[in-house]
Amino acid sequence: MMSTIIVQGGETPAFLSPSVVDYIVFGDILQVHVSPDDIGDPDLRENLNKVQDATLQDDLEKAVSCCDSWRYQVEGLPLVVTMANRDVFVKNAVLYHTVVQRQSCLDQLIDGLSHYGVLSLLRENPSLRVLLDIPGEDKCQEADFVAGILKPSYSVLGSNRRAKEELIVIKFREFLQCVENKELRDTYGDRTLTNSEEAFLKTLRPGHILAFATGSSKVPAIGFHPSPKLMFIHDEKKHLPIAHTCANELHLFVNAKTMADDD
């Protein structure tokens, strides 16, 4: 499924931890870079961080004793942990809990990624790991990013319609910024909203607007085809935007209601 998503230009499955992606890309557990922060269990993560940060042998022994419930079951860990082999203990312990313990599952995932040549592509071009890595910062959820993706398709410069369309774009971008800054609720003033409406306003992100227009909240691996556009409909009868996801178009209505100088 992940291979199919990637080759068909869908929303990339970028939700794997860096250590898992290392194992997929390198195919060698010895080349996996790990740290205690890669461990999901908070207690286990805290205990290994204590081992790593210990500066005195007594502190190290206390920290290691917190790992006694599992460490003797893990092959390759030093039985006696000293300041000299502390890093080896931590690295091997993290490797066990992040990769070795679920290695059979990860091998099945690797087998699936071999379809359509995706795995070989990843291994020949390690920079493409961004297709799988959890993104550090989701720019797709930024108002300026979404505004830059949706290119306005204006009427001819100098026409009566052009100035109105430019104003609508300004209002649309103000709306996106309002969504990003979580200020949309303020524009409703004292109006009573339902619980569903309140919850919707709290969770709404600019990426949702992109998804409404294109079907994807993120830019696909091979980009959008066709390029997303803002289209303008001069009609006094309607005002709610319409999406045409097959064409990656968001249609905005231009009329007295949408151009009104209010929130």
Score class of each variant (00 low, 15 high):
105 C>T: 10
105 C>W: 13
106 L>S: 08
107 D>L: 07
108 Q>G: 11
109 L>P: 10
109 L>A: 06
110 I>F: 04
111 D>V: 12
111 D>C: 07
112 G>P: 02
113 L>R: 05
114 S>Q: 08
114 S>K: 09
114 S>N: 11
115 H>S: 09
116 Y>T: 02
116 Y>N: 07
116 Y>F: 13
117 G>N: 02
118 V>G: 01
118 V>Y: 00
119 L>D: 07
119 L>G: 12
120 S>V: 02
121 L>Q: 04
122 L>A: 07
122 L>H: 06
124 E>R: 09
124 E>F: 06
124 E>N: 15
125 N>K: 09
127 S>T: 06
127 S>K: 06
128 L>I: 04
128 L>W: 01
128 L>E: 00
128 L>N: 03
129 R>E: 14
130 V>C: 10
130 V>H: 06
130 V>S: 06
130 V>F: 13
130 V>N: 05
131 L>T: 11
132 L>S: 03
132 L>A: 05
133 D>G: 09
133 D>Q: 09
133 D>L: 15
133 D>Y: 10
134 I>Q: 15
134 I>S: 11
135 P>M: 15
135 P>K: 13
137 E>P: 02
137 E>A: 12
137 E>S: 13
138 D>G: 03
138 D>S: 08
140 C>Q: 06
140 C>L: 03
141 Q>C: 09
143 A>Q: 08
144 D>H: 10
144 D>A: 14
146 V>Q: 11
147 A>V: 05
148 G>L: 01
148 G>W: 01
150 L>G: 07
151 K>S: 09
152 P>V: 12
153 S>Q: 05
153 S>Y: 00
154 Y>L: 14
156 V>Q: 13
156 V>H: 08
157 L>N: 04
157 L>I: 10
158 G>A: 08
163 A>Q: 13
163 A>C: 08
163 A>V: 15
164 K>C: 04
166 E>T: 01
167 L>C: 11
167 L>S: 10
167 L>R: 14
167 L>V: 07
168 I>D: 00
169 V>E: 01
170 I>N: 04
170 I>P: 00
171 K>C: 02
171 K>I: 05
172 F>C: 05
173 R>T: 00
173 R>G: 00
173 R>L: 00
174 E>Q: 14
174 E>K: 12
175 F>T: 08
176 L>N: 10
177 Q>A: 05
178 C>W: 07
178 C>I: 06
179 V>F: 12
179 V>G: 08
179 V>E: 10
179 V>Q: 09
180 E>R: 00
181 N>K: 14
181 N>H: 13
182 K>S: 08
183 E>W: 03
183 E>R: 15
183 E>A: 08
185 R>D: 02
186 D>A: 13
186 D>T: 11
186 D>S: 11
187 T>N: 11
187 T>G: 00
187 T>M: 08
